[in-house]
Amino acid sequence: MLLIDKLRIKDGLTDTEKRIADYILQHLAEIPSLNVETIAKHTYTSHSSVIRLAKKMGYDGFKNFRFGIAEMAHSQMFHPAFVDANFPFASTDPTEDILKKMADLTISTIHKTRAQMNNAIMEQAAETIEKAQRVFLFALGDSQIRARSFQNKLVKINKYLIVADEYGDDAWNAANLCPNDCAIFITYRGKNAQYQKILKHLTSIGVPSIVITGNPKAKISKLANLAIVASHDELDFLKVGTFSSQVAFEYILDALFALMYAKEYQKNIVELRRKQQLLEQGILSEYPREE
């Protein structure tokens, strides 16, 4: 989870530490040049309270904590304007503002998702999918649309993905999975009880699994071999749409496809040209040439 999210969520912080966190969020541009004494003075707290907050945020001391804040402040300066992921526009907004806000939300979502990505985990996930004989993707609702998009891309590199939840066959597909297959789960909340059951079963028989979620505390993540977490400020139900989460999922899946494609880049380019010629000029073309 990003530092700015930890400070906003304030999970596990005391009232004193919450006051310090609020002060930092309200004075991002100033904090990097301040010391412990100044922060303690303005928040009516003590030096030890500031140090404790730094350690709870994952830093060994205030100096590194301040560096983290400096990076966060710099990032905020160059990010698009903040947009509420749940209600990104209002009824009174003119067309120009709505278009700008949706663009800002999309851009900031991708930047934030990228900042949370672990390169090693992404590489392992791409390799797991590439090695699998069959790929089963479990996803519902809007996330299943992202699954369809990923399925369409994989066809381009001769990899075929099965949408496991289609026609309500998730349990049957789970029962058919083998250790040489791979299972991918996309769930923003990460609270799907059926997915947890399926993952426990897959773990027991040695099927590689990947979870893509927006919940850093999701139990489902601990059941999988690999977890890709993209945490955003999107509520479970009270929202206009699943804009932020779906942009994040689409970006993650696109990135996985790109990693797979790049691994066999020259081979894929050669195959692309061969198939393109077949589709445009060969027997599979829409308007084949007369003999």
Rank of each mutant, 00 (worst) to 15 (best):
V229S: 06
K112V: 00
T45I: 00
S46N: 06
Y261P: 01
I186E: 00
I39D: 04
M102V: 12
G141H: 02
K63M: 10
G214D: 09
I107H: 11
S221L: 02
I9R: 15
I157A: 01
Q277K: 15
A174V: 03
G241L: 07
V211L: 07
F243E: 02
S33H: 13
E30F: 01
I107R: 12
S204I: 01
I98D: 04
E127H: 06
W172R: 14
E17S: 03
H201A: 08
E250W: 06
T45M: 00
T187F: 00
I184T: 03
K55L: 07
A224F: 11
L256Y: 02
L140A: 15
A29V: 13
R52W: 01
R274E: 07
L53M: 05
I283Y: 13
L272P: 01
A224H: 11
P32N: 01
P80V: 12
V240P: 00
K197F: 02
F249L: 06
T43M: 05
Q151G: 01
D181A: 05
V135N: 08
K159M: 03
S33L: 08
P80A: 11
K153R: 14
S75G: 11
L99H: 08
V36W: 02
G206L: 12
F65M: 02
G241R: 04
L137S: 06
E96S: 14
A70H: 14
P216D: 04
L105A: 13
Y251S: 11
Q276M: 15
R134C: 10
A81V: 10
L235V: 03
K239M: 11
K156C: 04
F237H: 07
D22N: 15
Q281F: 15
N158I: 00
F87K: 04
E37S: 12
L99E: 10
F78T: 09
